[in-house]
Design a protein around this nucleic acid. Structure first.
Length: 875
DNA sequence: GTTTCGACGTA
DNA sequence: CGTACGTCGAAACT
């Protein structure tokens, strides 16, 4: 606490404290899902936040070393030379920690050629002169010399960084028997092993203190060294130069030139959004409120609630009349209850109108709603669906702020208008508190939501590059309309087929479980990884496997490996049990999802991926099993609906490799696709130098894995693991592959390099994905980003192509008055429900539109199948 | 009651 | 040490 009203300056040695935290906290508990270690960051911030909360400094800074080199290593090159290189896992955390501090508004100080402690010493010295009370927090004992009546040192105890010991002058005297300014004398005599500074042999703290007390100063001691008797006296005389050198090196510099004076370090308000973003990236959850509390910030954005114009409540006819007079773009919000519209709000930049939805409103407003008059909306799909249920097909959808926000920043979790208002307008959308029965604050009305949408749209348009804007106009907005119809249509699923199968599986799982219990002599929950670990590694004493956060892995790959090395009947049963219960779970969730119309209506999340793909939820229909005979019985339950004749499935074969061929321009790969030969056979023939007819099955498997791996940024290590071959063989395979298909490697390399320069990748159609981490000094982050950046244009272009085809097919079917309709999209596959007598026409439309969706240097091959259920229609 | 983790389904 | 997703039950938290 600041005494006598003095301002308090807290200066912290970031490096030494983070380093201690790094070793104090188990890395397993502190790493993100993409493998970034965060234990040092977390430990430091946790300590730091407690410190700020307890000490309430008015001024604040954190200092870091720039490297191991400093003026001290130049004076004495052995300085700290005994220290092993700090682990890469630690080094990588420092830039991220500095990012966190920057977001928190805390100045980060570094100075080339100096150590963090010199910065602390300088700030402490200047702080005293400027009338501060100074708190120095460092894990380096040399900082004891800074302690005065005005400077307190907070030093981490052996228990860890969370326990800080306070060193005042009295506390230093108590511990070392001498005042703080003499501490470096003691240290010089004793030496500092951690800094590789040898002292006088046989001289410890006790002797050093005795000598300094006796002679009054180090200089006096050194001058009169011949007065010391015995072996230690001899030692001292032999090491006078070492002591002088130590004393020179452990003196902290108090006059380093810095960017900031203590007065400049006044605590600034933290950037709540930035802190939220970086903590989300580091997967810190509990830390967030603690930071906000310590820094007296509210978790809510500080943004003001900006008053929207008062909505004018009108009847539908008046609204229709007003709408007819408008010429510019309008924003529209339709509120929904029970899947149907309840109110309609419309806004210009200075007017807000709204009306209730009813039959009269439908009749009055339908002409405008269905017209091409431009409309700006937020998350239009549910609203489009509600209107269609009410018999109105919305036209003129010109902008969706949610889609635009996603196109601009596909990695961000912005999922509603409130998030976007915060991000793009830095304002707060008025929201009623749902926990209150009678909310104190009124939420925005439909018209006001539209008004905010309009303003967010304007802000987003300022940011949208032309290419991304065209993705919005030409791909995403039309796709939205097609998805709305697909969701409304749903897919017919047979309850009977599912429930029959579910019963079988339940019985089978039970039988397997009983048999497994018999083998191990007790009943355990086979679905519990924890209990399984007990059985496998303790009871059965099988070798421990890959580590996870909470123990040892029991996943299928691990169990298969175990089965190879230590065959045990329990392992096979466990795998079978897993398979049966998994299938049953899937069936159960599907059954629950069958609506009253006998169909499953999934929801496609258009903003659900970072690459441009769709995702599917409630239930997810994009991960229905297919790989084995058993699981195909689930697909067989997806049937053609009443009133329709058959299901059509259409999928792109090897679309990602085709895009790779196009983007790389590799002559060999292009020839492969133009030859009509099986791709992997063709590639195998080239790689292994044999005729296509001589490509054996293992050869084909290898090049197939390699080809697919390329798209994902596969390494020799990963390839060897996947194929269960030696790493050297995998390396050789990659070499042979690239010797024949060199342009592929060139392309992959150059595309990542380009992304590093631009900061983003781009699909063939201009969809962008930012990759800030490509220039990260942190290797884990950078390499993860490199693989994702390699994949993004390929996966993303494939997604674009499928969306374009989907939109064309959807509109062809409607324009030609056909009843057939698209039901599902599974990334590279479409499922269409074909009406009686429409097969030939529909097949033609699907084949042409998918084949022509993009003009690549290789053909887009489309496979079409037909059947009364999904499994039969697959080929 | 809610969140996280391990496991696993798809392209 | 292979990209992109969503969902489940159990465990761990509130």
């Amino acid at each position: 606490m600041s005494d006598s009203g003095k301002p308090t300056l807290l200066v912290v040695d970031g490096h030494s404290l983070a380093y201690r935290a790094f070793y104090a906290l188990p890395v397993d508990n502190f790493s993100t899902k993409d493998g970034q270690h965060t234990n040092g960051i977390y430990g430091f911030l946790s300590m730091f936040v407690n410190l700020v909360k307890a000490e309430k400094p008015t001024h604040l800074a954190v200092a870091f070393d720039t490297s191991r080199q400093s003026f001290r290593t130049r004076v004495y090159e052995e300085y700290k030379a005994n220290r092993s290189e700090s682990p890469a896992e630690f080094k990588g955390q420092i830039p991220l920690l500095q990012d966190c501090l920057a977001a928190m508004g805390v100045p980060v100080l570094t100075k080339e050629d100096f150590e963090a402690d010199d910065i602390l010493a300088t700030l402490a010295t200047q702080g005293i002169e400027s009338g501060f009370h100074v708190l120095v927090c460092s894990g380096d004992r040399d900082t004891i010399q800074l302690v005065t009546e005005d400077v307190t040192l907070l030093y981490p105890s052996v228990q860890g960084v969370s326990q800080l010991k306070r060193y005042t002058p009295d506390a230093v005297v108590e511990k070392y028997g001498l005042p703080p300014e003499n501490y470096p004398d003691i240290a010089a005599l004793v030496g500092e092993t951690s800094d590789n500074l040898p002292g006088v042999p046989k001289v410890g703290e006790k002797t050093a203190v005795k000598w300094i007390t006796q002679f009054g100063s180090l200089d006096a001691l050194l001058e009169r060294a011949d007065e010391i008797k015995g072996v230690v006296g001899g030692n001292l005389r032999e090491h006078l130069d070492d002591v002088r050198r130590n004393r020179q090196l452990n003196r902290l510099l108090r006059d380093v030139e810095l960017e900031y004076a203590p007065e400049d370090l006044l605590i600034r308000p933290l950037d709540t959004q930035a802190v939220r973003d970086i903590f989300a990236r580091l997967e810190f959850r509990t830390l967030l409120p603690r930071v906000f509390e310590a820094f007296d910030a509210t978790d809510e954005p500080p943004a003001p609630e900006v008053a929207a114009p008062e909505p004018q409540q009108t009847d539908a006819d008046s609204l229709a009349a007003w709408l007819a007079e408008q010429t510019g773009e309008l924003a529209l919000t339709v509120t929904i209850a029970g899947g149907l519209p309840t109110r309609v709000g419309v806004a210009t930049s200075d007017e807000v109108h709204e009306t209730a939805w009813n039959d009269a409103a439908r009749v009055a407003l339908a002409p405008w709603l269905e017209s091409d008059a431009a409309k700006i909306m937020t998350d239009a799909k549910p609203q489009v669906k509600a209107l269609r249920r009410a018999g109105v097909r919305l036209g003129g959808l010109a902008f969706d702020v949610l889609l635009a926000g996603w196109l601009l920043r596909p990695s961000l979790p912005d999922k509603n208008l409130a998030d976007l208002v915060d991000r793009y307008l830095d304002e707060k959308l008025p929201e009623a508190d749902p926990s209150q029965l009678v909310p104190e604050t009124e939420g925005a009305t439909p018209g006001q939501l539209a008004w905010f949408s309009l303003r967010v749209a304007e802000a987003e348009r300022d940011e949208l590059p032309a290419s991304v804007s065209s993705v919005l106009d030409d791909i995403e907005l039309p796709t939205l309309g097609a998805l709305a119809d697909m969701e409304l249509a749903g897919v017919s699923v047979s309850r009977d087929k599912l429930s029959g199968f579910s019963g079988e599986l339940a019985a089978r799982a039970d039988a397997i479980a009983q048999e497994a219990y018999g083998i191990i002599g007790r009943e355990v929950n086979l679905g519990s990884p924890k209990q399984l670990q007990e059985v496998l590694f303790e009871q059965l004493e099988l070798p421990k496997t890959r580590k996870t956060k909470t123990g040892y892995s029991t996943d299928a790959a691990v169990l298969a490996d175990l089965q190879d090395s230590h065959p045990h009947p329990f392992l096979g049963l466990l795998l079978q049990h897993r398979e049966a219960t998994k299938l049953r779970q899937i069936i159960e969730s599907l059954s629950v999802g069958i609506a009253d119309d006998g169909r499953i209506h999934t929801t496609y999340v258009q903003t659900g991926s970072q690459t441009g793909r769709l995702s599917s939820t409630d239930p997810n229909l994009q991960n229905i099993p297919i790989r084995n005979e058993e699981s195909r019985r689930i697909r067989a339950a997806f049937e053609v609906g009443a009133g329709y004749e058959t299901l059509l499935t259409a999928d792109y074969s090897q679309i990602e490799m085709r895009i790779m061929a196009h983007l790389s321009g590799d002559p060999g790969l292009i020839e492969a696709f133009n030859s009509g030969e099986d791709l992997h056979r063709f590639v195998g023939a080239r790689v292994f130098g044999v005729e296509p007819s001589e490509v054996t099955s293992p050869m084909r498997t290898k090049v197939k894995a390699m080809s697919y791996g390329l798209v994902y940024g596969l390494s020799a290590f990963g390839l060897s693991k996947q194929l269960r071959i030696e790493q050297s063989e995998a390396k050789q395979l990659m070499l042979e592959y690239f010797a024949r298909f060199g342009s592929v490697r060139d392309y992959l390399r150059s595309s990542v390099e380009q992304a590093r320069i631009d900061g983003y990748t781009e699909t063939i159609f201009g969809r962008r994905r930012p990759f800030p981490d490509l220039t990260s000094p942190n290797r884990v982050l950078r390499e993860n980003a490199e693989r994702a950046a390699l994949n993004a244009p390929i996966q993303g272009s494939a997604a674009d192509i499928m969306k374009i085809a989907l939109v064309e097919i959807h509109s062809d079917l409607r324009d030609q008055g056909l009843s057939s309709r698209v039901l599902l999209q599974i990334h590279d596959e479409l499922v269409v429900e074909v009406a009686t007598g429409e097969w030939d026409t529909v097949e033609q439309i699907v084949r042409t539109r998918m084949g022509d969706a993009a003009d690549l240097s290789v053909p887009l091959d489309v496979q079409i199948g037909r059947g009364s259920h999904w499994d039969e229609a697959a080929h």
